[in-house]
Design a binder for these strands. Structure first.
Lengths: 262, 262
DNA sequence: GAGTGGTCTAGACCACTGT
DNA sequence: CAGTGGTCTAGACCACTCC
């Protein structure tokens, strides 16, 4: 005999995909489901927990269980890097029009709210390795949050690292009040004579930590994309490394790989 | 007052990160934890459920709760596409040495077990759109499973689509017994005169469905990467589309973007 | 067979949301 | 205040693993 909570979850899943329950709809109250399925409340709740873990429903305390709406995703293209490079040498006044994220998402500058904070930190092993410096090297850590003006939660958490002694030639790069958004890191690096040759992005996915779930307002039962980006200059030297956390249900990343002709 | 199950989860999390409990270790039995924390069994189990959802512990029925070992990831590089293209015109005897996955992972051909199944299907809306054909167009659906010989579960689930009338010029492409692994789709397309220009990969992440969790032997409390790949030929025509499911805890994807010089 | 986690019950009380 | 989900208890019985 199949487990009761699985049968209930299957049945509800079917009712959802059959359209009997549409995105945004409220499910019957848990006490109602207790009667419908003639099972105890904890069993019903276990079934609902399965659907929540699959990202199919959302539990709202005091209101009910709701069929989740598919999120409108934020698109992030690897074309953004070339686009940003093309503009890196433009005067700040031109760059002020739009940033790479607006370029990706097709939004206006005012639609997004951006926040930056700079700190000086000692290199952790993982970051030291990515930047090719000894553990403990002084780094500039820059923490970014970007969100839609109309939404409370950011859609990216970014921690970006530069080697302090490498970028100290331009004191503005150590000062968060001089953060040049929009326009980005490539124009900052240009001010100290660095041109980028390529960008490597290492992509993984995992469930969010409690802190990430909180900051991104991610419903329990979803995943985050972890993107570790390293930028190399024309001398093949890593000059910037960042770790980007993106909510899996709101993010699409598009990578285009061009192939040499025969 | 903080919730009991959160306090217990926090405490256990701390004991793990402090090294008191190392990866692979068994946690105290649930009944033991009941005494240690002076809470009921369901409360203890709820706390353990939190840690499981974070991917921190693994529950093994009849054996115990274990601190999860970090997985050794499978690396997948976008360089594989160029590498595959370079070999697409080689004779089958040469291609038989290694495939793109072995190239990425540094393995020998014998280390991997590969399985393919072909069907003819009508195009679903999403796939029709990606291939630029009307919904319902006859397609060749090819389902692939790849796993390590020593592991029971595959590390990729692939559904790949070709337009039947486009590839029918070579009947071998409709016949799963002629599946040319290793060597891949690009050499198959070469036999019907198609050269690829670029590959677009759209990456998202989400919790696994029950079927995916089962097939990939993914522990509950993890994420899958969904990769939708579309290959375009030199006439800018989409010629192949596939949907790849990768376990987030075992997969790293590396994308390199080269930038034009100033 | 001893020890472990998995499923399920019946019911109490708390916390949040909306009217 | 009524209705909803969230937390927690105490205990029974089942299923799996390993000796």
């Amino acid at each position: 005999m199949a487990k009761a909570y699985e049968r209930i979850a299957d049945n509800l899943r079917q009712r959802i995909s059959a359209g009997e329950l549409s995105p945004g709809d409220r499910l019957p109250a848990e006490t109602t489901l207790v009667e419908e399925y003639a099972k105890s409340l904890p069993t019903i709740r276990q079934a609902l927990g399965v659907l929540q873990a699959e990202g199919l429903i959302e539990k709202l305390h005091g209101r009910g269980n709701f069929v989740r709406r598919p999120r409108t995703p934020v698109l992030r293209t690897n074309l953004r890097h070339q686009w940003e490079k093309d503009r890196a040498r433009d005067p700040a006044s031109e760059r002020a029009q739009t940033g790479a994220t607006e370029h990706d998402t097709g939004l206006e500058l005012g639609d997004l709210v951006f926040h930056a904070a700079y700190h000086e930190v000692a290199a952790e092993p993982e970051i030291a390795k990515a930047l090719g410096v000894p553990v403990g090297t002084a780094l500039v850590e820059r923490i970014y949050r970007t969100r839609y003006r109309v939404e409370p939660a950011p859609f990216t958490l970014v921690r970006s690292y530069l080697v302090r002694d490498m970028v100290a030639a331009n004191p503005d790069l150590l000062d968060e009040s001089k953060e040049p958004y929009p326009g980005g890191t490539q124009s900052q690096l240009f001010t100290i004579g660095i041109e980028l040759d390529r960008i490597e992005e290492l992509v993984t996915a995992r469930p969010p930590t409690v802190e990430e779930a909180e900051e991104l307002a991610t419903p329990a039962g979803s995943a985050v994309i972890v993107l570790r980006k390293t930028s190399y200059d024309t001398d093949d030297r890593p000059v910037e490394h960042s770790e980007v956390i993106l909510p899996g249900d709101r993010t699409e990343m598009l990578y285009t790989t061009h192939l040499d002709r025969w």
